[in-house]
Write a protein that binds this DNA or RNA. Sequence first.
DNA 1: ACCTGAACACCGTTCAAGT
DNA 2: ACCTGAACACCGTTCAAGT
Lengths: 204, 204
Amino acid sequence: MQTRPRRYHHGDLRAALLTRAEETLEEKGPGALSLRELARDLGVSHAAPSRHFKDKQALLDALALAGFERLLATLTASQETAGESFADRLGALARTYVGFATANAELLDLMFAVKHDPEASEALVKASQSMGGLAAELITQAQRRGEVREGPLETIAIPIFSTLNGFARLAVSVTLPSATLDRDLEHVIAHTLRGCAPDSPAPR
Amino acid sequence: MQTRPRRYHHGDLRAALLTRAEETLEEKGPGALSLRELARDLGVSHAAPSRHFKDKQALLDALALAGFERLLATLTASQETAGESFADRLGALARTYVGFATANAELLDLMFAVKHDPEASEALVKASQSMGGLAAELITQAQRRGEVREGPLETIAIPIFSTLNGFARLAVSVTLPSATLDRDLEHVIAHTLRGCAPDSPAPR
DNA sequence: ACCTGAACACCGTTCAAGT
DNA sequence: ACCTGAACACCGTTCAAGT
């Protein structure tokens, strides 16, 4: 009765699992994520997912990795439409980062979770380091423009990224009231800019 | 054959559950935390924990709450032995915070987890806000001493706490290499101090 | 190559019943 | 008041077997 032959079950179980998993992750939290339920939702047997992910943890790792890739792409795009000044670029980065965090709260939690499979960790470390690379670009460029103080990269990049990621995660946890979130973010950006400013030129 | 009569099972199941839960949390991660195994470890029936925690989540919430209380106590103590200057006090706070984070990685994850029971959340929000109170004290005092720029409290406290908590969580996740952790923390402290410094007095 | 079905050992939660 | 034992509905994982 099917007009077109149905392919395997509907094409790409692996991708379908990831998509559906991320939906239920964000909707119902990580505790409610069950391989069996995923399989049920997609109309395959409960053992089918094991063909694509050896483990439940393997699926979570894949989810986290995809999250890093998406975040990195969004951050990179934010830099392309931003102005030239460090203030503009940092602002764009921060707002994009926090936007991603609030829209993907559980996913962000997963991405920075303490525990991962040792082998998947490698890919995850690499992915999170690409974000460090992006921050490095931003800063060295701003240093060349004289908008950021001189000094080894990591003495500036790590504090900035700590602040950004820290604020994003506070925003997403119960800690910060969401009513003042936008305003608070602007304070964080302003504060960060202060900390990056070059030493005021000797007055004369 | 017991020389002394055994009390109920050994006194305080609730406390015993929390203690044991935190041990296995830090040892084997949150996924390995099972109420049934906890009960087995303590030699009670698998249904016994439900007398003290209506839920698995309730136990996790209690764990998080205890974590906040312990962290707050440690931070408060760190201020009592620290010097008078803002640099000293902030440094002591930061080192203590990061020390707690690395020693209690999984617990910190739990404390700032996205999802909690609505009713437990209230207590958790209150607990995390006491930390805000501690930061507030630190800053207003430093403002009075002229070591921190003027301005509404939240424009300084939120950025500081974001940085602190952000660094602590990066340190604990896969993101930062542990080899340079101490050095990186000092950079973060120095950077934060810069961002808090009062405007340089008008030269004359 | 990809999936199924049955099986195994484990969960969390509930509830009558015991002391 | 605090705990037990059985029961229920659910897991993740494995493995022979099917196509």
